[in-house]
Design a protein around this nucleic acid. Structure first.
Lengths: 203, 203
DNA sequence: GTCTATATTCGGATAGAC
DNA sequence: GTCTATCCGAATATAGAC
């Protein structure tokens, strides 16, 4: 199962090309809207003829899927670059801030990853694996901060997506809702503590 | 400026027809996705030929705009049917629940009203008036509950949109996040009280 | 107001030469 | 892998008769 040096280079070339195409696809999506990206424009942008794109993607849905996967890789990479605080609660607050910031940094990416808005597009299993990877990372960090029930997770995810959504929808390019992240996590954790205390006292 | 009985009836007929067309447009949007609604299918559904739709809407964007306005009228009507609790905090909690429920009742409507997802579509000024009307209603109710600063409003709107988003994205047709509305408002108000106390003590 | 007919543009996708 | 050529379908929109 040893690949020849030639095929090695070929694979590498191909991956570089795919990456370049994806890059232009994001640019077009920013310019025209995600649903309005066309394979013709995309081919133009990368200096290919439109049918040649089919060498790299077998359909338009496949292109969206690759963008979806790319977006989640970006998210995982971004979270990976951030230092994790020692205090688990602080680490959680930072994660929330990072998520909201990540969304606010690219409205279109946010749209593709977190809103299901392209008619007919469903991420493939392979792409969903990346989404799950992120979800597990978040759950692990929640666990460390003492958030264990599904209900608590549900509420927290709602808080994150709400901040991200308002940020993207009402202050694109800004940081208005990003700045509320710490406050919201504090609020959430205080509520958690209050509930724990209440439960203990009722026993 | 007195309209004749004839033109009166004509206007009424026309409005009824527009309403019927909008009704079918919503159905198609549910079936195919909002962005995938076509004037051909729509004309078919209402028993007209496709060009005849241009008697009622001057473009496709105009149709979306009418749907947008219709959606906000539905929202205002829905909130209007709900009894307003005497306790302002309870009234606020109910409003939040109602908003989330409203979103969860129609994913596509939620998408059109609260996510900006159709490339090139911008609501007209006339339609935005309805959106503003709703926003004012919400602000008034917040005011009654003692929420007055912009930051507090910002956080509250994030909470609502987060609950609504998670509901439509992850439990469409269900009530999973609707049920967290009361808890989230409680949490928010408790935080508000805590902040007020802190501020008072620091003076 | 509704129709037929059609313009126009644009989209994704395929066949087959090089 | 890339190209030319082309298919096919679908979309919005307009002209003009009735």
């Amino acid at each position: 199962m040893t690949a020849s040096p030639q095929s090695d280079r070929r694979v590498q070339r191909r991956e570089a090309k795919v990456a370049a195409i994806l890059d232009e696809a994001w640019k077009l999506a920013h310019r025209d809207g995600l649903a309005a990206v066309s394979l013709r424009d995309l081919a133009d942008a990368v200096g290919l003829r439109q049918p040649s794109l089919y060498v790299y993607f077998e359909s338009k849905a496949d292109l969206y899927d690759a963008m979806f996967a790319d977006g989640y890789r970006q998210l995982l990479a971004y979270i990976g670059t951030r230092r994790r605080a020692d205090d688990p609660r602080q680490a959680l607050a930072n994660l929330v801030t990072d998520c909201v910031r990540f969304s606010s940094d690219d409205v279109v990416r946010h749209q593709l990853l977190f809103q299901r808005t392209i008619p007919g597009f469903e991420p493939s299993q392979a792409s969903m694996t990346l989404a799950v990877e992120f979800y597990n990372l978040a759950r692990e960090r929640c666990d460390a901060a003492g958030i264990r029930t599904q209900a608590d997770m549900d509420v927290l995810t709602a808080l994150i997506s709400g901040l991200a959504h308002q940020q993207v929808a009402n202050n694109p390019g800004g940081r208005r809702w990003v700045r509320y992240a710490d406050r919201v996590v504090e609020m959430f954790l205080a509520d958690l503590d209050r509930r724990t205390t209440l439960e203990r006292n009722s026993r």
